[in-house]
Amino acid sequence: MTDIKMATAEHQTTAASNGNSELFKRIKNPIIAARNLGLFYGHNEALRDVNFEVPVNSITALIGPSGCGKSTLLRCFNRMNDLIPIVRISGEVNYRGHNLYGDQVDPVEVRRRIGMVFQKPNPFPKSVYDNVAWGAKINGYKGNMDELVERSLRRAALWEEVKDKLKESGLALSGGQQQRLCIARTIATEPEIILMDEPCSALDPIATLKIEELMRELQTEYTIIIVTHNMQQAARASDYTAMMMLTDDREAGTVVEYNETDTIFTNPRDKRTEDYITGRFG
């Protein structure tokens, strides 16, 4: 697979590709994998030749400068880009061996299995309870709803703070609480992967730390992919890190280096990665 990519995408640095291939051999059981993924917004190329695998129950950080396609890549994993009519996608995203962009796949089902937490906390303008229950309800959850809500809120480390105000609006919570409510809402639909698009960028350091702790706890049950601009966060909270950059012709974004987080931060192979994480980028 890597060989094909090497042949078709010579602009990619050899070092990064090799790093990928070695890592891919170590990843025995990827839950989700992008294969030669490319994406166009109309005539603008946003992603090119992205190859990327995520092992089960890991936390993977996507880092890179603004505009290099991190969020776009993340949204490819739950077909959120489908909501933009002009998007065209090539290549594959395999989830447990099935191509998410296959003919038989319904994006609605994809999004239930692969949940998403957004940059700005966006609880529904409903009660805390309904925020958590709604997703499960529309997806046909038949069990005890009160239990599910409590379980999800506990899982999101929010239960103690909101158990007395389940009927109050989700918008009345603080920013950090709102973001954890969004996580609880995602958990309630029982996904396998949780995508997080800069979940802490609107939060203060204490709330950020809480979310990071929460991610570590959630890791036992879920696979997490997180986009972040915060190098310390990537270093602290992730197992694997993918460095994204614009290609050499500066038209599209791609993954230039992907490895265990420790390796990326202590011994990056790509010069650009090193410059970026040490703050000398640009």
Partner: peptide
């Protein structure tokens, strides 16, 4: 707000 729609789609709403 678009964020509200995304939130809804994100948990598997039609």
């Amino acid at each position: 707000p678009r964020s509200l729609r995304l939130a809804s789609y994100g948990i598997g709403a039609t």
